[in-house]
Amino acid sequence: MRQSLKDIIIDVCNKKIAAKGDQVGISFYAFFKNKNDNPELLMEAATWWIQTHKLDHFEKALKVKSLIEHS
């Protein structure tokens, strides 16, 4: 996964955790605007989320952040 996407994921996770607490859930769609303006990046995130890590639709933001930081 490219570093720019990792940075986005960590930033979004940090913001969600700060706003809603450690138990907040997140979907990979949270890393993108409500329009599909970068399908390649969206597919990269989806592949990492679904195929590589077999994550559920919603996962704890802390778990996602940890996976990114240790990859």
Rank of each mutant, 00 (worst) to 15 (best):
M1N: 07
R2M: 03
Q3K: 07
K6A: 05
K6L: 00
K6T: 00
D7E: 09
I8A: 08
I10C: 09
V12R: 07
C13A: 02
C13Q: 06
C13K: 05
C13T: 04
K15T: 08
K15M: 02
K16C: 08
K16L: 13
K16R: 14
D22K: 11
Q23S: 05
V24D: 02
V24T: 09
G25D: 06
I26G: 01
S27C: 11
S27P: 07
Y29A: 13
A30I: 04
A30N: 11
F31A: 04
F31N: 02
K33M: 09
K35W: 07
K35Y: 04
N36D: 15
N36G: 15
N36V: 15
N36W: 10
N38Q: 06
P39E: 09
E40Y: 11
L41C: 08
L41N: 14
L41P: 01
L42W: 12
M43G: 13
M43W: 13
E44F: 08
A45V: 11
A46L: 05
A46P: 04
W48I: 00
W49P: 02
Q51V: 14
Q51M: 12
Q51G: 04
T52H: 15
H53I: 11
K54C: 07
K54H: 12
K54A: 10
L55E: 10
L55T: 03
D56S: 10
H57P: 14
F58S: 11
F58E: 12
F58W: 08
E59Y: 03
K63S: 08
K65V: 02
L67C: 02
H70S: 04
S71M: 03
S71T: 01
